[in-house]
Structures are given as C-alpha cells and as structure tokens.
C-alpha cells in the first residue's frame, strides 16, 4: 500500500513537471499571444489592453498557478480558432481516439501472444523463420503506409469498406466500430510484429536460464516448462513494452486518423498546430501526457503485483 502511495506521488510530480514544461514552452517561446491575436497593424495601446485583459502582465508563476488550477477544475480555456471552449471541443473527440487505441491494443494482445509462444516453442522451424521474416518486413512499414495499403487492398480492391466514409459513433455505433477496425489494424500491425519478436526472444532467453533446466530435470515436458515456468518471467518485460506501446499508439493515431479521415484528437491537434491555437495544443498535450503517465504507472503497479521480487523491496 505504501508503494502504491509513493508511486502515485511520483506520477503526480511527473505530471506537474510536464505541465510546467509545457506551460513554459508555450508562454516563453512563441512570443506575445496578444499581438499575435491582433495582428501586426494593432496599436500598442490596444495590445496593452488585451494583455491586461488576458492577464499576461502578471508574474509568470501566478499565471502558471492560475492555468494549472483552472486546468484541474476542468476548464481548459478557450480555443482561439473555434467559438467554443477547449473542453467542449475535446469531449466530442476523445471517444473516437480511445476506441481506436483500445481496439488496436486488443488486436495486439490477441494476435501476438499466441504467435510469440508458437515461434518460441518451434524455434528454428520453417514457420518460425517465415514469421521472423514477415515480422521484420512489417516492422519496417510505417503505420500510415500500412493504412494506405489497407485502403488500397481492402477498400478499393475488395470493397470491404468505403475509404473516407467515416461513420459517427453518435449516429451508428455498429457502423462506427466496423469502420474503426481497419485503422486500428494499421496502427496495430507494426506493434504486433514487435511484440511477437520481443516475446519470442524473451521466451527463448528465459528458456536457457538455470531454473528452466531445473524444471526439465523434474520431468516437465517442453510445454510444461514454457507455460508453467518461463511464460510468467518472460511476460514481465512485455508488460512494460505494452504500456509504452499504448502511448505510442495514441501518438500513432494522429497519423492514421489522417489516412482514414477520422475526426479524432489527432485531427484537432494537427489543425491547432498549423493555426497556432495554443490553448488547444497545450490541453491536448497535457491530457495525452496524463494518459501516458497514468498507463505507465498502472503497468508499474501491475508489474509489482506479478513480480514477487519487487514486492519485497516495497515492504521493508
């Protein structure tokens, strides 16, 4: 329990550090948002008035504290571009990106664990070599190119879905899920390849450990050694990897949303970046970082729940 508390504290501090860095970057580097908003022809007086109105003349840390407080309260500020608050803008998009990420995660787990086990068990067989080669190729395919190929093959040639025909989840949830399958697949593909490779090499190296030899010496067959002894040890690094993958996929969705014309968080972020809509950019980045930190924290907790060695360190 003490460990959980410490972990939460560390996560909170990391998030605080991230928010501070983001605030620092976006207030110091881009120059004066007031003059940016009014354009080059504004009089100095007008700029000064707007600065006062936007609260830009207060000390840096006061502004940071203010921003942080309203952020915690769920007030992310107002978009420069759209006539709505950032909160409203994002609330609509989050379910889309989240669905895509979770769907890819599901694909990764369902496909890569059996494949990893199979290849490790039949190390050196033709199937293993074939999967190894395929893995190498798939890992070299950028997610958006996978998306383009999938559009070409499943969309244009096989007509299994309409390219660009996004269905809103509010209108038709089933249709929405069906449309999200191929984008999720294109995000998941390279990650599946990496997970299979990592799991396979982890299993094989654990299989060579002394304890695996002990397991054989008690009369276990290969399957028994693999499933009862080796798998749990080999899964530990995979867990960390999957945690990092989930965060990677959220980022990867930015590109894939573009390929499949999906109006998710990534689209919002891209538009905001090219229009210099800083409140939106800041909100999206801090939220994404929050998700990333949360997921990694959960993975750490899960890890220590599984690995007895860490549990001991946590309870002196």
């Amino acid at each position: 329990m003490k460990y959980v508390g410490k972990k939460l504290l560390t996560m909170l501090l990391t998030l605080l550090l991230v928010s501070f860095l983001v605030f620092l970057c976006f207030t110091v580097i881009p120059g004066d948002p007031a003059s940016a908003r009014l354009g080059t022809e504004a009089t100095p007086e007008a700029v000064e008035m707007l600065r006062e109105e936007m609260g830009l003349n207060r000390p840096f840390f006061v502004r940071y504290g203010d921003w942080l407080l309203s952020f915690v309260r769920g007030d992310f500020g107002e978009s420069y571009d759209y006539e709505m608050t950032v909160g409203e803008l994002l609330a609509d998009k989050i379910p889309i990106t989240l669905t895509m990420s979770l769907m890819s995660m599901l694909l990764i787990i369902v496909l890569s664990i059996p494949l990893g086990l199979y290849t490790a068990r039949h190390e050196g067989s033709w199937a293993d070599r074939g999967i190894y080669a395929l893995n190498q190729v798939i890992m070299a395919v950028p997610a958006f190119f996978a998306g383009i190929l999938i559009t070409l093959f499943f969309g244009i040639l096989l007509k299994m879905f309409t390219p660009g025909g996004y269905v809103s989840y509010r209108r038709d949830f089933g249709g929405f899920l069906a449309y999200m399958f191929f984008p999720s697949l294109s995000i998941a593909l390279p990650k599946i390849a990496m997970t299979v490779k990592l799991l396979r090499s982890g299993l094989i190296s654990e299989k060579k450990q002394d304890y695996a030899r002990t397991a054989y010496s008690r009369g276990n067959h290969t399957g028994g050694v693999l499933y009862k002894h080796v798998l749990k040890n080999a899964m530990l690094p995979i867990l960390t990897f999957l945690g990092m993958t989930l965060t990677d996929m959220i980022a990867g969705s930015i590109v894939v949303e573009q390929v499949f014309s999906i109006p998710g968080i990534g689209r919002v972020l891209l538009t905001a970046i090219s229009h210099r809509d800083y409140p939106v950019v800041m909100a999206v980045i801090v939220c994404l970082a929050g998700v990333v930190i949360l997921v990694n924290g959960l993975v750490d907790l899960l890890y220590q729940w599984i690995d007895p060695r860490i549990r001991l360190e946590a309870q002196p």
Binding site: V22, T247, A251
Partner: peptide
C-alpha cells in the same frame, strides 16, 4: 533521470509535434 522520464512519457512524434508547433 526525472526529466528524461518526463520526456520519455511523450511518444517521440508527439514531442516533435510540440517542437514543430513552436
């Protein structure tokens, strides 16, 4: 390492997007 960890929390493309937007 705290700072590196905080940066590591960002997927690299996201971090690059932040820099580009600045």
């Amino acid at each position: 390492m705290r700072i590196i960890d905080a940066l590591f929390a960002f997927p690299s493309i996201l971090l690059a997007l932040v820099v580009i937007s600045l």
